[in-house]
Every structure is written in C-alpha cells, then in structure tokens.
Design a protein around this nucleic acid. Sequence first.
DNA 1: TACCTTTGTTATGTAGAACATAACTACAAC
DNA 2: GTTGTAGTTATGTTCTACATAACAAAGGTA
Lengths: 241, 241
Amino acid sequence: MDDSKTTVKHLEFDLPKLNNLTMADQVELKLREYFKKKAFKPGDLLPKELEIAASLGVSRNIVREALSRLKAFGLIETKKKRGMVLAEPDILGSFEKVLDPLIMPDSILYDIFGLRLVLEMGLADVLFMYKTEKDLQDLEKIVSKEKPDSEKFRIKNEIAFHGKLYAMTNNDTLKRFQNMLLPLFDYVVAFEKDHYKPGGISHADLLQILKTGSVEDFRNGMRIHLEPHFAWLEHIKNKEA
Amino acid sequence: MDDSKTTVKHLEFDLPKLNNLTMADQVELKLREYFKKKAFKPGDLLPKELEIAASLGVSRNIVREALSRLKAFGLIETKKKRGMVLAEPDILGSFEKVLDPLIMPDSILYDIFGLRLVLEMGLADVLFMYKTEKDLQDLEKIVSKEKPDSEKFRIKNEIAFHGKLYAMTNNDTLKRFQNMLLPLFDYVVAFEKDHYKPGGISHADLLQILKTGSVEDFRNGMRIHLEPHFAWLEHIKNKEA
DNA sequence: TACCTTTGTTATGTAGAACATAACTACAAC
DNA sequence: GTTGTAGTTATGTTCTACATAACAAAGGTA
C-alpha cells in the first residue's frame, strides 16, 4: 500500500497539476492571445464556435462562456449567421462595470480621491490650451448661480463647475473618466464632511484667473481652492502612519 | 391589405421591440441590479445557479454565461459546494483586459496621451507631500545611469524616472494605472518621434528641485520638461481644427 | 471519548444533443 | 426583374447527464 502511494506521488509530479483555472478561463486566455497573435483588426471575422471547440478539444458550452466574457468586455460582436467579428472595445465601458463604491475597500476610495486631486491640479495647462470664449461664458453662468447658504446647491455647483473644467479639456476620455468617478467622490465627501472648510479661493476667483491670469496663477489658485481636500489627504496619511 | 399593415404598425408601437439584448445580457443586468438592490457586501453568499435559473425562467446555461461574465469582471467568486460569493473587484483588472493599442482608434490614443500630461503635471503637490529621503536616493541612482547617446536607454530611463515619481505618490491605484498606460505611451511616441526635442529641464534638474526647491518650482519645472509633448499635443489640436 | 474512514449530499464544472431563430443564398414563379 | 419560397449556416437557447470538489454526518476502531 505504501508502495502504490509513492508511485502515485511520482505520477503526480509528471502531470501538470497547476489546473487552478477552469476550462472557460483557459479558453478565454487562449482566444485572447490567438487574436493578438493573428493581429486581427476590428471588423475581422473570427472562427466559428464549433471550430474553436473542436480545435481546443472542449465543448461548445465552454467556448460560449469564454466568448460571452469577451462580448461583455466589448472585444467581440456576434451576428447571426455571419459569425463573430472583432470589435473596438470601449475602454471605459468595462471599467464602469466594476465601479461600485459600496463594495470597494476604503483604501481604493482614498486612492481614487488622491487621483482626483492629481487630475485637477494637472488640468491647468491643458485648460489654457483649449479654452474658448464660450467656455468662459458657460463658467460665468455656473458661478452666477452659486448660493452660499444651501449645502445641496453647493455640491451641485461644485460638480457643475469642475465638470465643466474637465469638459473644456477637449478630451472625451478624460471627461467620461471624471464622470464615472463622481459617485465615488460623493462617497468620500461623506467622510470628509466634518473637516471641511472652504478654501481661500472660490470658483469665481478661478474663473477670473482663467480669464485674465497666467497658467501659473491658475495652478496656484487651484491648489488653494483644493486646500481642504489636500488637508484631508494629509489627515489620512498621518492616521495610517 | 393596407388595413392590416396599419394595424401592425399600431401593434408594433405597443410591443417592446427593443429586444436587441440576448438572454445572457438580460440576466447579467438583472443580477447586477439584484446585488445592488440587496446591498450585498463582499463575502456574502449568493443564490445557486439553479435557483437563479428557475427564478428568472431561463436555462442554467444562460445563467452560467452571465455568471461567467461577472466572474471575469472579478465581481464574484465561485467555490465548489459552497456556492458563489460577492468579491471585491479589482477595478483596474478589468480595465487592463481591454487595453490593446493595436485595436484602439487614434482618437482614444490621443486622449490617453493628454491624460498622461494632466497626470504628470498634477503630481507635484502629492509628491512633496509623500517624498522620503530614500525616494530621493532612488531617483539619484536612476538619474546617474542616464546616458545622453543611446535612444533605447533614453526611453528606458524615461520610464524609470517617471515611474518612480508615480510610485512615490503612495497611491497604488495611480501607480498601476500609469503602468498599464505605458504601452500606449510607447505607441504614441512612435508618432511623436519626428517632432521630439528634449525639454529645457532634465531629470537631474527635476530631482534637484524636488530636493531643495518649492512645489511651485517643481510644477513649473515639470511643465518645461514636458514641453515637447505639449508641443505635440498642440500640433494635433491644430491638425484637427 | 477521541479519532479516522466512509459514505452521502450539494453546487459548480463539463459534455453532448437537440431545437429555435435570424440572416444570407439561390432557385423558381409570375 | 421582382417577388416568393425553400434551404443553409451560425448563433441563441434548452435539456439531460455526469464529473468533481467540499463539506457533513454517520459509523467503526483504538
């Protein structure tokens, strides 16, 4: 009996035991590298389900599970009869599908919050590059609606003003990115509430700089405007240390 | 005959013809909103495949395709016998799965490139907040290896230096993000090549500012360092207009 | 009593067959 | 030449069956 056991051990060593991945996982990977290897371009026709199944030696169900994933990522599109074609994936689309502040650990939320500060501090140069007269008028309209009293209106205008800044960058990806991250910011704001004090530079001030000031002025102004948030980040940093 | 046609038109209007979605798509959506509605938290046990299938009136295969997608997004994990549990998704993981410069349209690549500039310009304040003595030493080591001649070494050191900056932000999400975007930058660099001229401020200069200068100095320094890239962005802008 | 083996149950993983459906093809009829 | 009809093809969907891992409970031995 002991003999057979040791024999089995030897056999185990020969077999590739690292089979943690399910068949569907493996097929998904195989397909990904296959597409890459073949240098398929969007619109190209892909092999049929049955061909893939036969080629990889798995059932059609497995192949369909893998394809279903690629479809969910927007990597492929399927049409009856014609087959499947490689698609242009929407890079932010699949990102959006996992963004749920409720199931994200705080550490990630903090990171996202820090990312926001980096982004907003970095906007200045691009803003001065792309700003138009109409943009400034739009900002003017937003600022004019601000009321110092209401907390709800404050947040709403906060979003409107900063959102407009992102929109002015002429960078749709960046704008969409910010839009997706907004709910997370809201979530952090809840933590932040107790510490929040308005910065020394208002939206109106920023707009004025944007109109008549220099890029450098704007960078410095934005830094002061975001001061409360930076203070909170500092607060987190110290708490973790 | 004409009568019946008009009748059909009316009926069409009543029926929800927008059935472009496959069963798997619908189940995926249903499950997503179900999890959200029930306010499940990571680790919570989810219904069994057969229960879902019965509840929604579809076959188990369909349910499995939908679950397979959620699994690919990292939203759920499955364990034999125990069932499925809600997982903490890796927000960047699913992002990474669609990042392939070969199948992305140029417009997106430009956006990503702009995003990079915004990020790097925004790093300054966070850098000064988190920088340590060891970080500066690491940068020193990187800078000391730079050789002015080789083009290949230049790019390598470029990545090392800027990558280290991201790492210094103490923001893993941001760092990973940059790391994922790197291949895309490489791709853009190919376009940029013809126009590239080194900026007026070197990595060594930036390091010096980081050591003894002010945040403001660093922001301005980074802007000059990135000048060639900004020039290229301007070039794109004018070409599009 | 304590430990260990066996057996059973449960839920996911995989396979295979069958039919439904949309879209394209080609032939035929008027 | 247009219309209509049947056939073909590949995805969409369902059903059944079995494999496998993990856990639970029962039962036997020291």
